[in-house]
Design a binder for these strands. Structure first.
Lengths: 110, 110
DNA sequence: TTTGATACCTTGTATCGCAAGGTACTAAAT
DNA sequence: ATTTAGTACCTTGCGATACAAGGTATCAAA
């Protein structure tokens, strides 16, 4: 139960920055959904399909992302997402917002 | 709409650390709900009553907080919340979780 | 005794993460 | 030829929770 509690806390913190993380990864390289999940897992940010797909669609509908289909040699075609100009702008705003929150917590925990 | 977008992002990030912020404030001094709202507002973490009251009750039910009633010279009695030992333990776990996420984002944004 | 300030709390709505389940394509094994 | 395994896409239903709005109670001053 205690363990559960802690996991809950961590996942809550992760949630808050999920969109930021996704745009950050895509800022370096275009990627398809399954690839994104793996990259985020490596960074200890756990996301599952049922979370990611709707989120990518939302970000696309907000004009932050676009996608293109690419054939794969092993399996079905892949939907590669990439940042739009607006996505890059929003990412910069996220940088600011993030910085502010990190500062705030530095102060609160001093 | 763009403005809205940004505000949405910020509020999402804030949500992720809300519980952490509350325990952090209470770690310094006991406080009652309205006082907490003001202190968090000063720290640019916006919380409203409809968010805070249920949250404090949840944290109390999880054994992280206790409260005592105190008379006030100007108005109704106040419900002062304070951290329990378990609350302090969980706060330390939150410190770790937070540190991890800050590191993760440092790397993702490099 | 009404008004204003302070403080508590609840209800209803909307959002969103996640578990679970489903579809479709390719290649290799039977 | 058909089944199995791997990869990739997507949707549905549930539960948690933040927030707007509205409600109750206490005290003091007008």
């Amino acid at each position: 139960m205690n363990e559960n509690n802690i996991e809950n806390i961590k996942s809550q913190m992760r949630k808050g920055v999920l969109e930021y993380c996704i745009l950050s990864v895509l800022d370096k390289n275009d990627a398809y959904a399954s690839e994104l999940i793996n990259k985020l897992k490596e960074a200890r940010i756990i996301v599952v399909e049922g979370t990611l797909y709707p989120l990518l669609t939302r970000q696309k509908n907000q004009g932050l992302l676009t996608y293109r289909w690419e054939e794969s040699t092993q399996g079905p075609p892949r939907k590669y997402y990439s940042l739009t100009d607006k996505g890059r702008e929003v990412l910069q705003e996220m940088d600011k917002a993030w910085k502010e929150i990190v500062e705030t917590l530095d102060i609160l925990r001093k």
